[in-house]
């Protein structure tokens, strides 16, 4: 299903205090990273509901990146610890069901890690690119059951 002009679309949920700042730093430092990410800023990685991720996939994202502060650095002290448990459970489930693990990825990026941010994005985009478009997420409609 790979087409020549296809570019992966990645939705990135970044926590305001670290990863978003990290992305900002990458930007102001003129670091190159692929333009495939659409960044959505959230207050804290602990605020990311798995439904956000599912919804992104439903609306046509080829991959999702979730990123927050390093453990111990969360602005709200423990949001990322909760997030870590939640996402581990979710990831185990998705993989058991046969979702490619590369479609939903996680990282810790601090405000000073512009370099790491651009590297993470690079990796995510490349791994999703090698998988191709998210096939199963394409909606197919048919009105007639007798198609």
């Amino acid at each position: 299903m790979k087409t020549l002009d296809w570019e992966p679309k990645i939705v990135a949920f970044l926590c305001h205090w670290c990863s978003y700042a990290g992305a900002d730093l990458a930007g102001v430092s003129r670091m190159q990273y692929p333009p495939n990410v659409r960044v959505i800023r959230v207050p804290c990685s602990g605020a990311i509901n798995p439904l956000y991720i599912f919804k992104a996939l439903r609306e046509g994202a080829d991959g999702v990146l979730v990123s927050g502060c390093h453990p111990g650095d969360c602005h709200y002290i423990s949001g990322n610890y909760y997030a870590r448990r939640k996402f581990m459970v979710m990831k185990n489930l998705l993989e058991w069901l046969g979702f490619e693990p590369e479609r939903v990825q996680f990282s810790w990026v601090s405000a000073s890690e512009g370099q790491k941010f651009s590297q993470v994005v690079e990796e995510v985009v490349e791994s999703v690119r090698s998988l191709g478009p998210a096939r199963k997420m394409i909606k197919e409609f048919s009105f007639d059951v007798r198609r």
Binding site: Y81, Y82, R84, R85, F87, S107, W108
Partner: peptide
Amino acid sequence: APLLTYREDDQEDFIK
């Protein structure tokens, strides 16, 4: 409930 708590050494090898 397990998702309403955490341990600092919870597994995190799936996180970059």
